[in-house]
Amino acid sequence: MEKSEVRGQNILFTAVISISIAFLTGFIILAISMVLLKGLPNIISSILSREIQFAVKLSFATSIISTLLCIAIAVPVSYGMSRLEFFGKRFVSTVLDIPIALPPIVSGVALLLLFGTTEFGHALAARGIQFIFTPLGIILAQFFVNVPYMIKVLGSTMNDIDPRMEFVARTLGCSRLQAFFKITLPLARSGLMAGIVITWARALGEFGAALMLAGATRLKTETLPVSLFLNMSCGDLKLALAAASILIIISVLSLFLFEIMGGKQYELSRSSLY
């Protein structure tokens, strides 16, 4: 091959890569700025409206509660999946991943059928635990859709923690439980934080599954995404774009937090003090 030809190919190669990166970055910024340009000017007045205030409060309350539930379940599950060997582990692992693969709206239908049509659902409802068309349903939908993400993030963190650390702690007199709380959990801190941020941000934006289970009732099950949907449907662009802008701001901040927390090992972040 001629020297100039080689050079031409190399330039072309670099050009294709550079253009792809520039195109995608520009495309994302452009799309998001369209919402922000239209939404931000009205954001203050919208936040003062009763509807957006309700949506913000409900979104925060449901997402925080569902994230706490995710932590409560994902910590023992991810620890067990990382440390224990048992028959059918691969099958269990696949089952735990299913909600990630399902469209959220399908997860919503599944939950609706489980809690709306079965004896189990009716028994719960009779005791006052009503998921259908209530904020409780939003929490359950967010939990169901997001808990696998938390398990994934935490699981990879747990896998990175040397099991010998816990063993050494036990030779020093700790029980398994103490070793878990004193050694493994603190070492998993960065993964846990990253898991919390990503789960919470996803819960805040959860729409499909929550819509199926809890419905979209104004000022009852109206989270920020539902508010965006309802106001778009009835043509109130001002409120819709305000809700969208709030979601964008929260998402970008969360992504930023996630990068900071996920990218740094706990050990490094602490030892850098010295």
């Binding site: 650390m165 063993f167 036990r170 030779t171 007199g173």
Partner: peptide, 20 residues
């Protein structure tokens, strides 16, 4: 017995100090 009941001191080759 469980490891915590054995009262044995263990030093690994890479020392396995608690990094946090």
């Amino acid at each position: 017995l469980y490891p915590e009941q054995r009262n044995i001191g263990f030093v690994y080759q890479d020392y396995a100090l608690f990094p946090h």
